[in-house]
Amino acid sequence: MADQGKVDPMHQFEVQKMFDMFHVGNHEVAFTTSAMWMVIAGLLLWVFMIGGMKRQLVPGRWQVAVEGFTGFISGMMNANIGPEGRKYTPYVFSLFMFILMLNVIGLMPLGLFGVHPFTVTSHFTITGFLAILSFSIVLIVGFWRHGLHFFSLFVPHGTPWWLLWLIPVIELVSFLVRPFSLALRLFVAMTAGHVLMKVFASFIIDGIAAGPAVGLGVGIPSMALMVGISGLELLVAGIQAYVFALLTSLYLNDAVNLH
């Protein structure tokens, strides 16, 4: 909450420095709230995965849940890339689970327990890093496997010869836009959702401040909408993680199989 008791919907995205660590050049590296939630997400994911490591022939509930996630991603890789996709499953699985965990943690009502929740994926430094990582892997795999032939990606099959001056340019631009669309999609979806929820929450607070009649008239519909939007945001959290992983797998398919 910002000055004058007003709700600032952007305040939730502020990264707080918790303690200093060391310097890289003139940049200071600190342990921040963002770092804390990333560490928590990584540890929670690790604990979740340990439950799937019992390796029983007839799995228990937890193992089924873990195998459901791994099966989901390996099925997607198999469908999009083929048998060669298995090699990249660890990366895409890590990506999917990490983003999903960060998205969902950001939605948890931890404020009720006095903890300040924070959505790491609402920062384009994070989503941008992951997007550039994916894009770099696509470039490395593409040039590693196909050498300069990888550029044939920009000339799709069946391009008429008299369009050869235009199509590669369009393809190149759409190829270069990929990391930005990948990073911005996740960052915007998370930011927008959390702003929306914060705005509706501020409606309730401001309504109550304006008196009981306004408080009920505005508060109840806002609360109802909040409930719906919270459910929607949980869906978005899953979908955005899925989209990030899906697009990464599709881009990897371009690099592995060249159209």
Partner: peptide, 11 residues
């Protein structure tokens, strides 16, 4: 000065 470096380091 600490924001970008910390974010990238920790991610």
């Amino acid at each position: 000065s600490w924001y970008a470096a910390s974010q990238i380091f920790w991610v």
